[in-house]
Nucleic acid binder design. Structure first.
Lengths: 143, 143
DNA sequence: ATGAGTGCAAATAGTTTGCAAGCTG
DNA sequence: CAGCTTGCAAACTATTTGCACTCAT
């Protein structure tokens, strides 16, 4: 397991802290996510792994754990497919994406109305508020 | 086909204008959507129809057409299920929803950053920009 | 009458579950 | 060594497609 990106190291530390176990497959999955630095579906992670490294089912289970542990962000594609993303750059905080409907290329979007939404939801008496937002379009090359 | 809500009538007019044909099943589906006035999945529409009125496949196809014709809004649930919504009240323009993760109850949310997103996307050279946003939480009764 | 629309059956995509065996802490 | 994790097979849910038939225009 050659060099390990900073992102992966951070993630592993966090996982360990949350009491999850560190396995070869988890490290591999994190590696793929880190290399992409953009949202990926379980299937895409699978494709990015050296064949036989890990079962697709394991990827689903790990991604779910990663999300619970708060080390990846969950998003949705236009067609409903769930995608997970290891925070890009800096702090990797909450963010969204501008995804090309055609080639899949995604860019980070930092505007977000999370607070306004939370306030509004609280106003309606809702608790445990979360939100999903995805922006789609055709990127310059695909336009 | 008893009385028909204003919403349904509007929708039918629009459909006709766009060159789509008006069938019993389409009217029925619109009727269900209008009664709910909140986002529904294809399955839920199906359940709301008198058995045998229309095939589930037809619902999928109709909803797709309705969206193309611009008479329903497309949304996504937390788990990726697509939901469609006939504009509530007033103009039925673009809007989002605050959905209870537990009981499914949904309320309309009018805040939206569509313009900011569009500007940002344009800035990145993207065209044909659309976005999906859904807010989830636990409603007062389910909290 | 003619092509959009429908029903039925079957195929897909994405995701979940059960269970026995393996590996981490 | 206890129990979290994994792999494999199989079940499931949401959605799509092919094809012959029907009905709105």
């Amino acid at each position: 397991m050659k060099v390990m990106s900073k992102l992966v190291e951070q993630a592993i530390t966090l996982l360990r802290k949350e009491g999850f176990r560190i396995t070869e497959q988890r490290k591999a999955i994190l590696g793929v996510l880190a290399k992409a630095e953009s949202p990926m579906s379980a299937d895409e992670c699978f494709a990015g792994l050296t064949k036989g490294k890990c079962d697709l089912v394991t990827i689903y289970r790990c991604l779910e754990q990663f999300e619970k542990a708060g080390i990846v962000e969950l998003g949705v594609r236009e067609n409903g497919t769930r995608v997970y993303c290891l925070g890009h750059g800096h702090e990797g905080g909450h963010h969204h994406h501008l995804t090309c409907r055609n080639c899949g290329h995604a860019e980070r979007v930092d505007i977000c109305m999370g607070n306004e939404l939370e306030d509004l939801a609280m106003g309606h008496g809702f608790t445990k508020v979360t939100h999903v937002m995805e922006v789609f379009g055709l990127c310059p090359s695909c336009s």
